[in-house]
Nucleic acid binder design. Sequence first.
DNA 1: ATGATTTATGTACGTCCTTCATAATGAAGG
DNA 2: CCTTCATTATGAAGGACGTACATAAATCAT
Lengths: 205, 205
Amino acid sequence: MKDVHKSSADVEHDDEGFLYDSRARAAMTSFTAGEDTLALEAAAAVRAAARAVERMRAHGAEGRGLSAGALDILVRLNASPGEGTSIGELAQAAGVSSRNVTGLVDTLERDGLVLRVPDRHDRRSVLARLTPEGQAWIESFRRPTQVAMAAVFRDFTSAELSQLRHLCLRLADNQNRAFRHLEQTGGTDGGTGGDTGGDTDGARS
Amino acid sequence: MKDVHKSSADVEHDDEGFLYDSRARAAMTSFTAGEDTLALEAAAAVRAAARAVERMRAHGAEGRGLSAGALDILVRLNASPGEGTSIGELAQAAGVSSRNVTGLVDTLERDGLVLRVPDRHDRRSVLARLTPEGQAWIESFRRPTQVAMAAVFRDFTSAELSQLRHLCLRLADNQNRAFRHLEQTGGTDGGTGGDTGGDTDGARS
DNA sequence: ATGATTTATGTACGTCCTTCATAATGAAGG
DNA sequence: CCTTCATTATGAAGGACGTACATAAATCAT
């Protein structure tokens, strides 16, 4: 993840003084034949922002060698102490398949940051728990992360941060609803391969 | 990339009526010990949003079988017609390594959507160009994509879309600046160094 | 008890992205 | 011309994320 930070982004200002990426706009305009350009531009921007955050986060972990997914799990474990958290719960919280979490926990356990302990109440279940090393890791990671985050969000007012969070979560929420809807109506396709499945669910809430 | 659309985030409302993810907030708060929670929450939200957009896009491509990266290239090629676009340029525009683009173009070429042609002015360079099949693919893809985008951005006013785009691009911009700065001051280590030539920026589709 | 469901995981893939090394070309200078 | 250096694309490896399907163990339902 190094290099790559050169020039790029053709960031300019539009009429309202907002930033936009001229290349992305060109691509999008041509793609949609001018219809929903704004939405696609926004989508592109979200993607770009996610990459930016990701790079920053990686930078914060420099050398410490934990990947995004693993870090996600670690932070979540740190948030909910107690006996530990089951793989399934973690998967649900992170919005990924449980198989994926199993792999991430494998990695963390290999590194000694996390420990697997049996669940007393359900012997099928496995709880992941932070080890002292894991806690220490988080301690040492906290500082650089804050610095990195401060850098990405430089010049953002707290109102803007709230706004950004708000808009992003609405996006996620819309996606959820849309998929849930498709799921009910039986919907989608079926073309190739198919997936359809269903995975992670849980339906709770 | 399918399933997983279930319960994802515990989205609630805060005092100002903004959405937030209670689980993410809990994790972040505990992680930062209460300091820069807002920034980290926003970062998490951005990630979630990117996933949402990604899923929608995948859904739009349902069955057509093109992955995000490949689609990115395809759309960019469609945007800049002419003789074609070199691998390096594509890499720079997309913010990834040129090696990566080589692979994506491989895929697209195998599928017959893109053609490699030699660059008349520089025989080292290879231009990628859309084939008629590629154009047709894009045509047929446009509609479902718009539908998907409309779904994710449901209830967003155009002002909100602009705002979202604006905030995201500022994020990407900040990241760029930060890295550029580190590069100058010798900051991070290094790694390799070199290569790629590229860039990073933001903007992807 | 029998059978269905859930939980985690083994196995197998596919995709993205990276780094390092290499071949061909281009640019500069002796 | 020939040497040297930079650049362009790609071959070779590998890491990480994430998915689907199948399996074993345990729990739940009847």
